[in-house]
Amino acid sequence: MADYRNLRELVTGARPEEQRVLLAIEDITMSPRMRALQQKGRFEVFPIFRGCASIIEAGVISYFRGNYISAYLTLVPVIEGVTLRWMGYTGRGKKPDFRKIKRFVASSYRRQPCPGNPLFHEVYVNVADKILREHLFRPSGEGDAHSHFNRHLAAHLLSDSHFGTKENCVRLCLLLDVMSELYIYETYCQDPRFYLRGEEIQKEYEGYVQAFINRADSSAPERTLLLAKDANNHFESNASPFRCASGQDAAQVKR
């Protein structure tokens, strides 16, 4: 509830700043513990995510290493892949029309007229649908998506726009989390995340923390090769590269 109040104050303030809102969302969404909970409690369990779970984890590891280009390009196709599995497509026969894929989340009420937690369900449907239709799945002929957050742009490299950013990676992980929440509301399945013991997420948690710590190493290839050649901030290059989602430095996270 405290997170909700904080976000509401940021959004409804006299001069809401997108960067501050994104940082608040990052603090909630992108901590190593939260990513481990989502990985073990949802993505490796729910059928529509299970086939993409290792791909999701590869993207998350790239994120924690500060390789946002690789993280973004890894996670972008997962959104469509999860949606197709949710629609029942198995890879055989004709793939569903993309217009149906784009509108799938918005049609949630047709699949489940009585969803669990209807108030939150409505909020999540509206948020996910807006992100998908107006940005991620927006046709290239209809203008630019916000912050170049667009699958078509990434898939075909239509321009030199910098889509592989930290912020866009956070948006993708948030979208996956919202989709997993909607899946629970539609299917009435239990949320396995709440039944996980600490030791069951320990391996993933420690791996993500280690990836985060490794990016602080000045000899890491992401820093010596990619960051050195990139003057446009594809990678985190501020004065303190050790900040993680919780605002702690690498040493604090390790402890």
Rank of each mutant, 00 (worst) to 15 (best):
V78A: 04
G141P: 01
D129E: 12
H152A: 14
E186F: 07
E80C: 07
R110W: 09
H156C: 05
A245L: 03
V253Q: 13
E222A: 06
E167W: 14
G198W: 04
N126C: 08
G91F: 14
R110I: 12
R193P: 02
V170P: 00
L225C: 03
R193W: 02
R197F: 06
F104V: 04
H148W: 15
Q210M: 13
L175D: 01
G91W: 14
T74C: 14
A220T: 02
S237V: 05
N168C: 08
H135C: 12
L75Q: 00
I48N: 02
N117E: 02
P113Y: 12
S240I: 07
M1E: 13
V78H: 01
G143K: 09
L226E: 12
H148R: 09
T224D: 03
F46W: 08
R92E: 15
Y185R: 14
G164D: 02
F235A: 10
P77A: 10
Q38S: 07
L175R: 01
L182V: 08
S219H: 11
E9V: 05
A24F: 09
S161P: 01
G141C: 05
V60S: 01
Y188D: 09
R65Y: 04
E9T: 10
S161R: 13
R110Y: 13
P139S: 11
R99P: 01
R8V: 05
E142G: 02
I79K: 00
